[in-house]
Amino acid sequence: MSQSASLEMPVKKLWGGGTSPFGTSYGKLMMWFFLISDAFTFSSLLISLGYARYVHADAWPVVENVFYHFPFVHGHLPLLYVGLMTFILIISSVTMVLAVDAGHTNNKKGVLFWLGLTVIGGLVFLSSQAWEWYTFIVGNPEGKLMQIVNAEGQTVMATVHGANLQYNEYGHTLFANFFFFITGFHGFHVFTGVLLNAIVWIQAYNGVFERRGHYEMVEKVGLYWHFVDLVWVFVFTFFYLL
């Protein structure tokens, strides 16, 4: 990477135009600013989650007793599936780094190969999340007998299966709400990232960046994709591990 050449320039040249602020490109700078604002949104969500957990500590479920399913395997397997999802996202982040790296040396074949793998990794992650949501919403066959407010507004005892926004079999209502909102918002980001990566892949395939002379667009979507991975690292810790 280019060490900020602008810093060594004489002051007159630095302020006389003809250089980019911070020695980085305009597009990358704007992507960083967007990511800061997005990081604040996710931080707010995770801090509110911590707040709700703390206030409703007695009604909050132990997360490993909620997410212990694994596709095609029966039994109590906590953390393994979500650990696998984390791993998938980290690996797709690595392939993105390699795509950006290939772009630095104008290597079109490398960009197409690694960016293609990144798109596939993102799709695998999204389908894993769909399965996680499905398992969470359907719930256990035995369900849980609990007090709920029915459609007529009466409080009745009923067997609850799985989760929705009003009540869930696992614990406090907010638990399911935060699960849907945080992983849903993150999943929406992953979906957007896959879309952006796919568009850039098609552009690279059509030789747009070759004609342009640089692969900066790969760097920009790369920043976004790494941010998505970064957010998942925090969601993994603060939702699943703690």
Binding site: F22, V100, G222, L230
Partner: peptide
Amino acid sequence: IVLTLIKAGYIVLVFMHLGDESKSL
């Protein structure tokens, strides 16, 4: 929490190349 911050640091500084940017940025 400490391990998460270490992971986040490596992602931001190496994968996002923030470690290679100028100090002001």
